[in-house]
Simulated scan of single mutants.
Amino acid sequence: MIHSKEAQVKRCLLYNKGLMPYQEAHEWQKSLLAERVHNPHLDDVLILLEHPPVYTLGQGSNSEFLKFDIAQNQFAIYRTERGGEVTYHCPGQLVGYPILNLQRYCKDLHWYLRQLEEVIIRVLAVYGLSGDRIPSLTGVWLEGRKVAAIGIKVSRWITMHGFALNVCPDMTGFGRIVPCGIADKPVGSLAEWIPGITCAEVRSHIVQAFTEVFGIEIVEEIMK
């Protein structure tokens, strides 16, 4: 049987968004996932956006990694169904939420996590930076500083949540937590190595690396 080239191409819808409240993005992801669990033939999705300041806790994560009292805090906090510990989102951090059907790629969560790391590593390479992996930990490091956090949730092999790359955020908020529950490894941002870098320019590099790593065709969606 001869398969057409078109039939073999994996399409991925790209939603390039700006600043979006965490809860709104979370509900959107859950909706997209539910649609694809119901109909696995729907196209994959990649959402790129930034969040207003917010702390998120992974499923089963330890609240002791917060350095403030949850009951008397002034910061938005959400406990989600992703893996991983507490993390911080804010403007200047580029967040990617892939909604992928892993049955089209590889039904292996460790493989998927390594692929997300590879996307970030390739983006850093564009700037001449060498991103590192640390065995037994998930994420990407630059010279010992964690610049990208990754946390996922998978249902029926459909993914949600994803990665957060510190491009040029105000790092103050990270001081109120033990990021990802790792006390002995500091966080960093690309702006420390590349002054003046912006999320706007990094977006295109993320899309290019994501296309290469997952072997997909990006279809950009225009949202009003």
Rank of each mutant, 00 (worst) to 15 (best):
N62S: 12
Q103Y: 04
Q29H: 05
S130L: 06
V119G: 00
Q115S: 07
H26I: 02
D43I: 00
Q103K: 13
F75Q: 14
G96H: 09
F75K: 14
P52V: 04
G83N: 02
Y127Q: 13
R133E: 06
P21L: 03
K30D: 09
N39S: 12
S136N: 14
P40Q: 04
R104M: 00
I77F: 10
Q23Y: 05
V37I: 14
Y127K: 12
I77H: 11
V86E: 07
L113N: 02
R79K: 15
P98E: 08
H38I: 03
T138F: 02
C90D: 13
H41I: 00
L14M: 11
L102G: 07
Y55Q: 08
M20C: 09
A71D: 15
E64F: 07
K17H: 14
G131H: 01
V119Y: 01
V95E: 07
I134Q: 12
K67M: 07
E50I: 06
L113A: 07
L32F: 03
I120E: 05
A125G: 02
V95R: 08
M20Y: 09
V123T: 03
D43H: 15
C90G: 07
G92Y: 07
L14K: 09
Y97R: 11
I121W: 04
Q72L: 14
V119W: 04
G83I: 01
Q59Y: 12
R133D: 00
P40M: 00
V95H: 10
Q72H: 15
L124V: 00
W28V: 02
H51Y: 00
S61R: 07
L137N: 07
G128F: 09
E27G: 11
Y112F: 14
A125K: 13
S61W: 01
L94S: 01
I120L: 09
L129K: 09
T138W: 01
G139S: 03
H26W: 15
F75G: 04
L46D: 09
Y105C: 10
Y55M: 15
L32C: 10
Q115Y: 02
T56D: 02
L109N: 10
I99D: 09
R122T: 01
L109E: 11
E24V: 07
P135T: 13
S61Y: 03
L124A: 05
V45I: 11
N101I: 01
F65H: 15
V123D: 04
G60Y: 02
E81F: 05
A71H: 13
L33A: 06
V126R: 15
V54C: 05
D132P: 04
Y88F: 14
E35N: 12
P91E: 13
Y15A: 13
V37Q: 15
Y97D: 11
R114H: 13
Q29D: 11
R79S: 12
G131E: 05
W111R: 11
E117Q: 13
A71E: 13
P21C: 08
R104K: 14
